[in-house]
Structures are given as C-alpha cells and as structure tokens.
Amino acid sequence: MNCEEFVGLVTVFLDGALHESAEVRCLVHLAECDSCETCLDQFRQTTAILGELPAPRLSTETRDRLRGAFRALPRD
C-alpha cells in the first residue's frame, strides 16, 4: 500500500469497515510511514472536534428542500 491508497481509505479504516486484508495492509503501512500516521491522527482529531459541535438547526422548510434534493440525485 502506498500513501495515496491509505489516504483514500482512511475514513473507512477509522470506521472499522475495511475488509480484514485491507485493514492489515493499512496497519502495515502505518507502521512504516510517519506521514500517514500523522494523517490518521489529524483525521481522528478532526472527527473528535466536529463531534463536539452542536447539531445544526435547520428550518423545516430547509430540511425538506435538502431531503428533496438528495432524493432527486441519480443513483448508480
């Protein structure tokens, strides 16, 4: 695994949602790469800080418009 591959998987890695073989590859890469270890730490810190923010307060109209817009997105 290289750094670009790791960065592409970092959020899935943090969620614990990787297939076991991919997780092992990430762990091996992290053991060898200080830059990606730093990247992982920054993602953890960002997630923790964002988790402390209060939930946004949207008006019912805005929330309904957003839901409608997401429902209208094409699905693969």
Rank of each mutant, 00 (worst) to 15 (best):
C36S: 08
Q45T: 11
V7Q: 11
R44T: 04
L9C: 01
C39T: 11
D41R: 14
C33W: 09
A48W: 03
I49R: 05
V24L: 10
G8Y: 01
I49L: 03
A31M: 04
E4F: 08
E61T: 13
A55F: 08
C36D: 10
A22C: 11
H19Y: 02
E5A: 06
R25I: 02
V10W: 04
R65W: 04
A72Y: 08
E61G: 06
T60G: 10
V12A: 14
G16A: 01
H19C: 00
E52D: 10
F13E: 02
E5M: 03
E61Y: 04
C39W: 13
D64C: 10
C26G: 07
F6V: 10
R25H: 00
S35L: 15
C33R: 09
R65T: 11
A48H: 06
T38A: 14
C36G: 03
L53F: 06
A17K: 11
M1T: 10
R65Q: 14
L18W: 02
N2H: 13
L73Q: 07
C39A: 14
L53S: 01
P56W: 13
A69P: 01
V24A: 03
P74I: 09
R67V: 14
V24E: 12
T46P: 00
L73K: 05
L66R: 11
C26D: 02
R57L: 15
D41V: 06
L9V: 07
E23W: 00
L18R: 05
E32R: 12
R67E: 11
T38K: 14
D76P: 15
V7F: 00
L14T: 02
L14M: 06
I49D: 01
L30F: 07
R75V: 13
L58E: 03
L50T: 08
H29W: 12
E4Q: 15
T60W: 07
T62F: 04
F70K: 07
H29D: 10
Q45L: 15
L9R: 12
D76S: 09
T11P: 00
E20T: 05
R71L: 13
A69M: 08
A22L: 15
M1I: 11
I49S: 01
Q45S: 11
T11H: 08
C33P: 01
E61V: 08
L58D: 12
T47M: 04
T11E: 14
H19D: 02
L18S: 05
H29K: 08
C3R: 15
D41T: 12
R67G: 05
A22D: 15
E4N: 03
T38E: 15
G8S: 07
P74D: 12
S35K: 04
C3A: 15
T62H: 13
R67P: 02
L40S: 01
R57E: 13
C39G: 00
V24S: 03
E20R: 03
L53C: 01
L18P: 06
A69F: 12
L14Y: 02
D15V: 00
T62I: 14
R71F: 07
R65A: 12
Q42A: 09
L14P: 01
V12F: 04
T46H: 07
V10L: 04
H29A: 03
C39Y: 10
T38V: 12
D34T: 09
